[in-house]
Write a protein that binds this DNA or RNA. Structure first.
Lengths: 75, 75
DNA sequence: ACTAAATGTAAAGTTTATTTTACATATTTT
DNA sequence: AAAATATGTAAAATAAACTTTACATTTAGT
């Protein structure tokens, strides 16, 4: 009954579309440390909703264009 | 330069639209405790992106229909 | 009015996100 | 090839999300 999920992201892609924005620049725009960007971009953990919104905002896109949510199937 | 944000949500509204879904039911569907739903619904803190997605999923809507992100202005 | 179900508050404890620092490797520029 | 910039890894410390338990209040049903 409990579902399985996976969240993926397009941060790397978006950074390159956005004039090769650097991790450092993105971190500053989003107001977090570079480490956090690295970790989120690498999918090591999923960010807070707040950070997710700020990252989307930094790229000028909607949150759904940055993060993808896939239901993997029932348990 | 650093922006000010606010995240609001429509959980209560959505719960009533969704056949008066109870906090308990939502908690179960989203796989978290009832306390967490109460806190998020009341805006006491913003959830993880993962939970945000699961809540949206529980209502069958997109994340943007549950959570609203407003830039309040520059600092 | 009584009972049950739903919502709320609070506080201590655990887990996960985020920061900070420091260093290693890769990529670009000159 | 040297220097500078960008990316990566790691680990300890802090902050924030989430759980659990327990009780108080409000709302709905009979």
């Amino acid at each position: 009954m409990a579902k399985n999920f996976e969240i993926s992201n397009n941060i790397r892609r978006l950074r390159f579309f956005a004039n090769a924005m650097t991790q450092q620049e993105l971190a500053e725009k989003a107001g977090v440390s570079r480490q956090t960007i690295i970790a989120v971009e690498a999918g090591k953990y999923s960010p807070s909703l707040e950070l997710a919104f700020r990252i989307a905002d930094a790229f000028g896109v909607k949150i759904g264009e940055v993060f993808d949510y896939q239901v993997k199937g029932d348990s």
